[in-house]
Simulated scan of single mutants.
Amino acid sequence: MDGDEQLLNGRVYGADHDDPNPGPLPDRTYAELVGGPLDGLLLDIHGWRTDEVDDGAALVTELSRWPGGRALYDPRPGESLKPGPGVACRLYYSGDTP
């Protein structure tokens, strides 16, 4: 694991790099990002409807194939969304886009 990846693990996507507590909050709902440049991060999906989660996410990152581009993450068919706070689902890396 390189230095950039070590900085990201256990963090919430979008948290400031110098935030003293970049981890998840107990009353929020998250998707775990699996694979790709944002592997190990949690995406805050609190308040998202099921169909929004099913659409996946295109997340801006300097770590994608195109710096400043987007890493694409999608759910796997058949995996269910667990209700309530905490990690509700996983989104899997499916590619990059500029």
Rank of each mutant, 00 (worst) to 15 (best):
R11M: 11
L63R: 14
V34I: 11
P67T: 11
E79S: 06
V60G: 02
D74P: 00
R90D: 10
A58K: 04
Y92E: 04
D55R: 15
G69K: 06
D54T: 10
Q6R: 13
D55K: 14
T29L: 00
R76T: 10
G14L: 13
G36T: 09
D51A: 11
S64T: 15
K82R: 14
P22F: 10
D16C: 10
N21C: 02
L63A: 13
A88L: 07
S94C: 13
G78E: 11
D54R: 14
C89W: 01
D18S: 06
L8R: 15
R90A: 15
W48N: 05
P20W: 09
Q6M: 15
G36C: 02
G86I: 04
M1Q: 12
L7E: 08
G95P: 00
N21L: 05
G10Y: 06
R65L: 08
G36L: 02
L81Y: 07
P24E: 02
A31Y: 03
A57I: 02
L33N: 03
D96Y: 09
G3Y: 10
S94A: 14
Y73W: 08
S94L: 10
R76G: 00
D51Q: 12
L43V: 14
E52M: 08
D96P: 00
R70I: 00
D16R: 15
L81C: 02
T29D: 01
L38K: 06
P67F: 15
Y30R: 01
G3W: 10
E32H: 10
G86W: 02
V87S: 01
G56T: 08
D4K: 13
Y93Q: 06
Y73E: 01
R70A: 08
R11A: 13
C89K: 00
L72R: 04
Y13M: 02
G56Y: 07
L33H: 03
L59K: 08
P26V: 03
L42K: 08
G40F: 04
Q6Y: 02
S80I: 07
G3C: 03
G10L: 03
D39G: 07
R70D: 01
E5S: 14
T50Y: 00
E52C: 02
R90F: 14
P22C: 06
P98T: 02
S94R: 12
N9S: 04
P67L: 15
P85C: 03
A31S: 04
P24T: 15
T29K: 03
G56C: 10
V87T: 15
G14R: 14
D19A: 15
G69W: 05
R49A: 12
E5M: 11
A58C: 04
G35N: 05
S80W: 12
D18R: 12
